[in-house]
């Protein structure tokens, strides 16, 4: 329809460090892909490492138009996207390609109301996060008593509390110094970010039990999106709805390499026996029940969101360990 569409230079903003796996294998290739498919009409400038604002600001950076596109973490602004927290329930997901499939499906069914002002390109729960500690190995719930753990916020904060440790909410960029100086004893995050923020240097132990992870997504400024012609819009939709699949970055295959890399850096990975695992899961389920009760009290369809999340996970052979089984009975 518009054969003479002007060249667009799209700003992409993320808090991931410029040399991180995220930027090198997902965001830069994604923007390159847009350029390629649009025959060079959709150019880009990459603003990584929070060059346009701190981590929690990233939704607003896009929403207001400082950047055209960007990757944001919903969990870092507690209370702002209450239902979207459903994507960060404890679940075993080991690839962002899979996470985005689940997140997008849940978004379509129950989360649309929380993102009226921006163009949501994709939503995902991040890859399963674990507890990483500086000097004390965590092999049971008892080991967690009194530990100060950096939390990414949201359910992870509630899980840390439910396990008897002390959550401290802070952006990832501050964690290395905080671990080094003892502001925290450990942290909860996913393995890619352990690598991206070089935390394998300060963490000696990782306890392999999913605490879920933050809810994140790729969004685009509404005005910037509407400025594009329909062909360009289509390219954006195709490439960005699951950028992980398109670029092959941070997929399930990559995940295995990352875990090996973390081990090779001298971090001891601790597996828990099934009986111990179930003890943790039961506490997580209680967190889900309390969370649903709280939000339903405010008139938000939280139970429906949890059911939808569970359904989409089951469909893909993924276990939502924080799912209270009695919900299925109606």
């Amino acid at each position: 329809e518009n054969a003479f569409a002007a060249d667009q230079n799209l700003r992409f903003s993320t808090w991931h460090p410029p040399v991180s796996r995220e930027v090198k294998t997902v965001w830069t290739p994604m923007m390159e892909e847009l350029k390629k498919r649009s025959n060079g009409k959709l150019g880009y400038s990459m603003y990584a490492g929070g060059a346009l604002g701190k981590g929690p600001d990233h939704f607003d950076i896009v929403n207001r138009g400082m950047s055209d596109l960007g990757y944001f973490t919903a969990t870092w602004t507690p209370g702002r996207f209450p239902l979207t927290d459903v994507l960060s329930l404890a679940v075993w997901v080991d690839g962002k390609d899979l996470a985005a499939d689940i997140g997008n499906a849940v978004y379509q069914k129950v989360l649309k109301d929380e993102f009226k002002d921006v163009k949501v390109l994709e939503l995902n729960g991040c890859i399963q996060s674990f507890i990483w500690t500086k000097s004390k190995p965590v092999r049971s719930i008892e080991d967690l008593k009194g530990l100060k753990l950096r939390s990414p916020g949201g359910h992870q904060t509630n899980y840390i509390k439910a396990l008897g440790a002390e959550p401290i909410f802070m952006p990832l960029g501050d964690v290395y110094m905080a671990m080094e100086t003892g502001t925290v004893d450990g942290l909860v995050t996913c393995s890619p970010l352990v690598l991206a923020f070089k935390l394998a240097e300060v963490a000696k132990y990782g306890t392999v039990l999913t605490l879920g992870c933050v809810s994140e997504g790729t969004v685009m400024n509404m005005k910037s999106y509407n400025k594009l012609d329909s062909g360009q819009k289509k390219i954006i939709d195709e490439v960005c709805t699951n950028p992980f699949k398109v670029t092959g970055g941070l997929t399930r295959d990559v995940y295995k390499q990352m875990i090996a890399e973390i081990s090779s850096k001298g971090v001891e990975l601790i597996e828990l026996p099934d009986q111990e695992k179930n003890k943790w899961y039961e506490r997580f389920r209680q967190v889900t029940r309390d969370w649903v009760k709280g939000l339903e009290g405010k008139g938000l369809p939280a139970k429906k969101a949890v059911l939808t999340m569970n359904e989409e996970c089951e469909k893909r052979g993924v276990k939502l360990v924080a799912f209270p089984p009695e919900y299925l009975k109606g």
């Binding site: 507690p78 209370g79 702002r80 904060t157 909410f169």
Partner: peptide, 12 residues
């Protein structure tokens, strides 16, 4: 506009 609360104590 801001609906963000603090993470632990949920103070707006």
């Amino acid at each position: 506009e801001e609906t963000t609360v603090s993470d632990m104590l949920r103070i707006p």
